[in-house]
Computed example of a mutant assay.
Amino acid sequence: MKAIKWEFAAVAGYYTAINAPKLLKDPQWPSFQSEGWFGRSTNNVGVDKLAHAYSAYVISELLYGRLKRNTNDAPGIEITAAALASGVMLWTEAFDSIEPTSGWSWEDVTFNTMGAGFSLLRNSVPGLDEKLDFRLMIEPNDDIYTISGKEHFQQQRYFLALKPAGFEAFDNSPLRYLELHLGYHGDDFLLEDRAAGIVPKRHIFVGLGINLRELLFKDSKSTVGKAAGEVLDYFQLPYTAVHTHLTD
């Protein structure tokens, strides 16, 4: 932890800052609330659960990258990164527990753990990070991205990306520029949709995407190019993938 004390302090400080206002909005004694999983009756048909998993995953990956650099890839750093990421997300959940309209959710904690756990797995199995990513793609709307309310959850697509570029068999094949996607997103679950009697939709999807890192930044020598390539392991630019629904 000493090797990444400032990085960890920055992450913990950020989550403290965005949650601190809850202390001023009629806080209650900590309570529990069952939010459900992916049912149509849940607030966000489960998209928020994947958002929790993704946040924990990205935090763990960020801390792992810094630990790898600062400790010269010491053994066990993937465990440290996942544990610290889980701790940050538990800290965030503690703030939710004092909100009058919320509470400590074990469903959230479960998906926080799963996100950090996937990072642990990805960084423990040799070569897995070159073959499999957990990504977010945002579908732009008229506001590009709506921060307030729940509409931003409706814009989010979370998926696993299997990358042929990570397999030696595809080193000289054009297929290395493509990926296979499997993911989930929801539609028609906003309050106005429900009030209008529209049934919320839960979509499991599959599709093909463009491996932009392999296409644009594989051999980049610049700091900016390398950073851009790293970001593309976690974020899919809109309109660079074609998805089809398996469920409606």
Rank of each mutant, 00 (worst) to 15 (best):
L132A: 13
G76S: 04
N123K: 13
A82N: 02
T240H: 06
P164V: 05
K5L: 11
P238T: 11
S102V: 03
M89N: 03
D233Q: 14
P164I: 03
L160R: 09
P174C: 08
A3F: 03
M1Y: 12
S220V: 02
A56L: 09
A74H: 04
D248K: 12
S102G: 05
R135G: 02
I18T: 10
W104P: 01
A165I: 00
T240I: 03
K221H: 14
V206L: 13
N70L: 06
L23G: 03
G225W: 04
L175E: 07
I59P: 02
A116T: 01
M89H: 00
F32Y: 10
R66I: 10
Y64D: 09
I144L: 15
G149W: 02
S86P: 00
D233W: 03
L90H: 07
L160N: 10
L237C: 08
P30H: 07
G149H: 06
V231C: 01
F95K: 02
L212N: 14
L208T: 14
N44D: 15
K218R: 15
P30L: 04
R157D: 01
V58T: 05
G39S: 15
P126I: 00
F205T: 07
N112W: 09
V109Y: 07
G117D: 04
Q154W: 04
H245V: 05
Y234H: 15
W104T: 04
I79W: 11
W104Q: 01
P126F: 04
E230C: 04
T223F: 10
A85P: 04
L121M: 12
D193L: 09
E93K: 02
A165S: 15
T247A: 05
V109M: 12
I210S: 08
N141E: 14
L162N: 03
E61F: 01
G36Y: 06
Y54P: 00
E151V: 04
P164C: 10
T101F: 08
F205R: 11
M89P: 01
G207R: 03
F38V: 14
N19I: 04
P174Y: 07
T247N: 05
E78D: 10
A161Y: 07
G207M: 06
V199A: 13
Y145S: 09
K218T: 14
L24Y: 12
D188K: 12
G65Q: 09
F167R: 02
K226V: 11
L128K: 10
L24S: 13
Y239W: 13
D187W: 09
T110Y: 09
A3Y: 02
S34D: 15
K68Y: 06
K25M: 13
F95W: 06
I59F: 12
L90V: 09
Y15D: 11
